[in-house]
Design a protein around this nucleic acid. Structure first.
Length: 423
RNA sequence: GGAGAGAUGGCCGAGUGGUCGAAGGCGCUUGCCUGCUAAGCAAGUGUGGAGGUAACUCCACCGAGGGUUCGAAUCCCUCUCUCUCCGCCA
């Protein structure tokens, strides 16, 4: 949710923001017009209410004094004022509702450090880590590796649930679990609090975090109960403190959660159809920070490094890119994507997305903190995958494969897997 | 799933139609007092919105949303959540 007071004072910020995002700006004109009209009604209504309050006080006093004829006279007056209020207030509420529903569709303002660009082709790579392995044999894609090992079964996934669902057996199933546990152990030893969250959330919860109303197509819903399956643990973690006033001393709060994620993947027909890359259900370890506004962009650097650390410990080559203004997400002011090297793609594939949403979610969810000077401010929320587990599994399988189709278990996972090779 | 009780400020808790944004207590802040601490005394102590350079003024908020009324914390309806009992259950 954007700051309407800022919109009144400096509308140019928002025109600029939408232009940078390569989007049209009529919505800003509409909001400004509605806001102006709304305020004029608000003032009239407030003045009339003030008048009615005054009359009511006098009615009370006159009745107490036993002067009921005089009181009746004021009651008649008050009735007229009341009717007037009802009319104007109805109009005011309508304008307010229109204005807010539009405001919910305005994306966050990109940070000044975000490169300008029209779409994903203009994202900027900022660093690389590790060298992609040179194979002295023909490496297999993970779907062949897994199927040949008898541990990935795409047919059974389809049989049970349709396309983009997979069944895992044996060591691969265990690898998935080991990766999750490894990630949580690294993050918790790094200052994150592990949280176990609900996977079904209420409409208002997911609205506060920004997935609704705009992205309802992506969500699985349980209509009967008006509940939504989370597309990421970010929803639950970022909603933890809805309505709270935190102490400045508590910040930053750093949370991590391991959950499945459910996504309809509407509009991605034909994309990544083979293998585990794009599933309707996948597991992920998520990182979420509640930070102070003055250092939230430093926090984004830290959070991104925390996610990168997992890939470094696993010995998986990756690169980090900054999303340009045309590609950053709706709620984000700045986003880094981490992409891992996948032999089957002969390229880098997104495995984590780390964003600073600044006060965008905090405003929707009314998440504030009390500063030392006693002032109330909105917190800044940040989130990032640390990491997507399915894709990490894919990266390990493909990068650590052997000529005989077996897979070497990365050093750091051996304590969890209790074996050196999957075969 | 059935029956009942409840939700008031940072906390406890009064308040069932009228000068109630809300008694009282606790806590907190400031000042006084005091070898120190404690106690005592005094004042202050919510959030959001609109207007104003500002001092300040006005409006709203007693779980949420509607309704009745000239007027609602108080009456009515719906919802959410909490607690107790019964049933069921991993």
């Amino acid at each position: 949710m954007i700051d309407l007071k800022l919109l009144r004072k400096q509308p140019e910020i928002f025109y600029e923001s939408l232009k940078k995002r390569n989007q049209t700006t009529e919505i800003i004109d509409q909001i400004i017009a509605l806001d102006k009209e709304w305020r004029s009604y608000l003032n009239q209504v407030n003045n009339l209410k003030s008048k009615r309050n005054e009359l009511s006080k006098n009615v009370a006093r006159l009745k107490a004094e036993g002067k009921s004829e005089q009181a009746d006279e004021l009651i008649t007056q008050s009735k007229t004022v009341g009717d007037e209020i009802a009319d104007l207030e109805a109009k005011q509420n309508e304008l307010e509702a229109q204005m807010l529903s539009l405001a919910l569709y305005v994306p966050n303002t990109p940070h000044e450090s975000v490169p300008i660009g029209k779409d994903e082709t203009e994202n900027v790579e900022i660093r690389r880590w590790g060298e992609p392995r040179k194979f002295d044999f023909e490496p297999k894609p993970h779907w062949d590796l897994g199927t040949d090992l008898g541990m990935l079964d795409f047919d059974k996934g389809s049989k049970l649930s349709g396309s983009r669902f997979t069944v895992m057996f044996g060591q691969i199933a265990k690898l998935e679990r080991s990766i999750a546990q490894f990630m949580l152990d690294v993050h918790t030893s790094n200052g994150y609090t592990e949280v176990n969250v609900p996977h079904l959330v209420k409409r208002e919860t997911i609205t506060a975090t920004g997935q609704l109303p705009k992205f309802s197509e992506e969500l699985y819903t349980c209509e009967r109960d008006d509940l939504f399956l989370i597309p990421t643990a970010e929803v639950s973690l970022a909603a933890l403190h809805i309505g709270d006033v935190l102490d400045e001393d508590m910040l930053p709060l750093k949370y991590t959660a391991f959950t499945p994620c459910y996504r309809r993947e509407a509009g991605s027909y034909g994309k990544d159809v083979r293998g585990l890359i794009r599933q309707h259900q996948f597991e992920k370890v998520e990182l979420v920070w509640y930070a102070k506004p003055d250092n939230s962009f430093d926090a984004l650097e830290q959070l991104t490094h925390d996610a990168e650390k997992i890939l470094q410990l696993l010995g998986l080559p990756y690169r980090v890119i900054t999303l340009c203004t045309g590609d950053i997400g709706f709620a984000a002011a700045k986003t880094y994507d981490i992409e891992v090297w996948l032999p089957s793609y002969n390229g880098y594939k997104e495995i984590s997305s780390c964003s600073n949403d600044t006060d965008f979610q905090a405003r929707r969810g009314n998440i504030r903190y009390r500063a030392k000077d006693g002032k109330m401010n909105y917190v800044h929320t940040l989130n990032g995958s640390g990491l997507a587990i399915g894709r990490t599994l894919v990266a390990i399988m493909e990068n650590y494969q052997n000529p005989d189709g077996s897979i070497t278990v990365p050093e750091v996972l051996r304590p969890y897997m209790k074996t050196e090779v999957i075969k």
